[in-house]
Simulated scan of single mutants.
Amino acid sequence: MTPLPRPEILRYTAFSADPAGGNPAGVVLDAAGLGTAEQLAIAAELGYSETAFLTAPPEGLGGEPGRAYTVRYFSPRAEVPFCGHATIATAVAFAERHGPGDLLLATRAGTVPVAVTERDGVLRATLTSVAPAVLDVTAEDVAEALAALGWSAADLDPALAPRIAYAGARHLVLAAATRSRLADLSYDFDRLAAFMRGLDLTTLQLVWRESESVFHVRDPFPVGGVVEDPATGAAAAAFGAYARELGLVAADAVLTLHQGADLGRPGELTVELRAGDERVRVSGTGARIAD
């Protein structure tokens, strides 16, 4: 039997209009015929924190014809239930070929609508998260996270309590007291990975609050085989739910998250909260990375 030709593998960055900024992702817009092992192998070959693979939608998903899909996300080591930056990258890649508009994506975490608009030649994608949740975390777990990071309790901002936040994937939110603490990140990779696997965490969302609506964030991702994620849409959505749950922001709020500057890949994530709607919207631009 003749093997199927390998699908086109695209490389896009998300949360930046500059290919040198934001978070790179692999995108396969037609992954029909690729099994789990093949998708994981492609993700490992690319080496990005995640690669997204589109296939036919499940029966009954809805959405516009030709704009509804199943999507799976793979890090170099494992499948993850949801990835925000790969969703943004996929939506921008799709819009470049088929025009802006709405997409409906069936993820392992649930159904995620994505809207793409164009202004002055720049495409911008907005995903709407699954229903979020914010959970308590024990003092013992916080202490272990701090030990793996090489941080002390005094390095934390007492106004932003540690929590586990979910909006498609689980993230432990820890707030640094100073920008310099956030900038100085050198952690025990294996110890943090083991800790995160025990709590089913995708990343740590490390944050520093610059102002009422502006935050700087970093996301260690050792469970995915990546030291740090340059821009993390799933964690941004979870953080929006966290900020609302802790009363840090108004019911209607737009937050700006700066991420990646400490890695030399600056990106900007916009998080929107709407009164009466528990879901969180995360927006950003994207750009193709030359092969």
Results as ranks from 00 to 15, higher is better:
5 P>A: 05
9 I>L: 13
14 A>E: 01
16 S>T: 03
18 D>K: 10
28 V>L: 12
29 L>F: 08
38 E>T: 10
40 L>H: 15
40 L>C: 13
45 E>Y: 08
47 G>S: 06
47 G>F: 08
55 T>N: 14
56 A>K: 15
58 P>K: 07
59 E>A: 14
60 G>D: 09
63 G>Q: 07
65 P>G: 02
69 Y>S: 10
71 V>N: 13
78 A>H: 14
80 V>A: 09
80 V>P: 12
82 F>V: 08
86 A>Q: 06
89 A>Y: 05
92 V>N: 05
100 P>T: 04
102 D>Y: 06
106 A>F: 01
106 A>R: 05
107 T>F: 06
108 R>K: 15
110 G>R: 07
110 G>E: 02
113 P>R: 06
116 V>P: 07
119 R>F: 05
120 D>C: 08
124 R>F: 00
132 P>G: 05
134 V>A: 07
138 T>E: 14
138 T>C: 11
147 A>C: 03
148 A>P: 04
148 A>C: 09
148 A>I: 00
148 A>H: 00
150 G>A: 01
150 G>S: 01
153 A>D: 06
161 A>V: 15
163 R>C: 08
165 A>M: 14
170 R>K: 15
170 R>C: 04
173 V>A: 05
174 L>W: 06
177 A>D: 12
179 R>I: 07
180 S>L: 13
183 A>N: 11
187 Y>F: 10
191 R>C: 01
192 L>E: 00
193 A>F: 01
193 A>V: 00
195 F>Y: 03
195 F>M: 08
199 L>Y: 05
200 D>Q: 12
201 L>T: 00
202 T>G: 11
203 T>Q: 05
205 Q>I: 08
206 L>D: 02
207 V>Y: 03
208 W>P: 07
209 R>W: 02
220 P>E: 00
221 F>H: 09
224 G>Y: 01
224 G>C: 05
226 V>N: 07
227 V>S: 09
230 P>A: 07
230 P>D: 01
237 A>M: 09
237 A>C: 12
241 A>H: 04
252 D>M: 07
256 T>V: 13
256 T>P: 11
263 L>H: 03
265 R>M: 02
268 E>D: 12
269 L>V: 11
278 E>K: 13
279 R>L: 09
279 R>S: 03
282 V>Y: 05
283 S>F: 02
284 G>E: 02
285 T>H: 14
287 A>T: 06
290 A>H: 11
